[in-house]
């Protein structure tokens, strides 16, 4: 029982929560980067919950399927020898492994992803690009998804065509059987369900770039970040 003036706690709870939430737009990611290694192992114990912080972004009605018997990777355009590789032929190429961080332009990242696959330059060399070639267009089996890199960008040391993720064949959700990996750029440049590479005279706007995203999607210095 009390005759004292009541405390205004309800609005305090409301305003403090709103203030914490709004300001977290500025500090949320920094704090999360420090604590995520504590939370993530717990997360993996819960069924259904995201595996290691991935989200699956798609632009069409359903995910492309993969039939090992009929699948081919075609490299064409401004090349001396058009190349068409079956899945088995792809696996027979020299294998490369790397551990790199995957950054999505929407703000989430997955650290230390173990990729296995082939170096893009090894595949490209077989097609002998012509002198007129200055860019590559990566065509996804998920239509109408497409994106491109300049030849210079695609020759970065850790650019890869990955068919394995964390020691297992690439899953359907992550672009089975083959995806582009370029860790220096945001995820939308890392084309999933890769079906073909067109060697072209210059880079064109890809799917998200036509919707206003930067063509040169450098992590931390494009798309309004760090600029």
């Amino acid at each position: 029982m009390t005759d004292e003036a009541p405390l205004r706690i309800g609005r305090g709870v409301f305003l403090a929560t709103v203030a914490g939430g709004i300001t977290s737009l500025l500090w949320g990611k920094t704090v999360w980067d420090h604590v995520s290694h504590v939370v993530s192992p717990v997360e993996s114990l819960v069924p259904l919950v995201p595996s290691g912080g991935w989200r699956i972004y798609t632009v069409s009605g359903s995910l492309p399927g993969f039939d090992e018997a009929t699948w081919r990777l075609r490299v064409g355009g401004h090349v001396g020898t058009p190349v068409s590789l079956s899945y088995r032929e792809l696996l027979a190429l020299p294998k490369a492994d790397q551990i790199s961080t995957f950054h999505c332009v929407t703000g989430w990242s997955v650290k230390n992803v173990h990729w296995g696959g082939v170096r893009l330059r090894d595949v490209l060399a077989r097609a002998s690009p012509l002198p007129s070639a200055h860019a590559l267009e990566f065509v996804s089996a998920e239509q109408p998804y497409v994106d491109s890199l300049t030849l210079e960008q695609s020759s970065l040391q850790d650019v890869m065509l990955a068919y394995e993720m964390d020691g297992r064949p690439l899953s359907r959700a992550h672009g089975a059987p083959l995806r582009l990996v370029i860790p220096e750029m945001y995820g939308y440049k890392n084309v999933k369900w890769l079906a073909g590479i067109n060697v072209v005279p210059r880079a064109l706007d890809g799917y998200w770039e036509q919707l206003g995203y930067d063509r040169d999607a450098w992590v931390g210095r494009s798309n309004g970040y760090g600029t």
Binding site: G21, S24, L25, L26, W27, G28, K29, W32, V105, T106, G107, W108, N223, G224, Y225
Partner: peptide
């Protein structure tokens, strides 16, 4: 202009 790295986390 409306893009923040932490929006999706929030």
């Amino acid at each position: 202009r409306f893009r923040f790295a932490s929006t999706v986390l929030l």
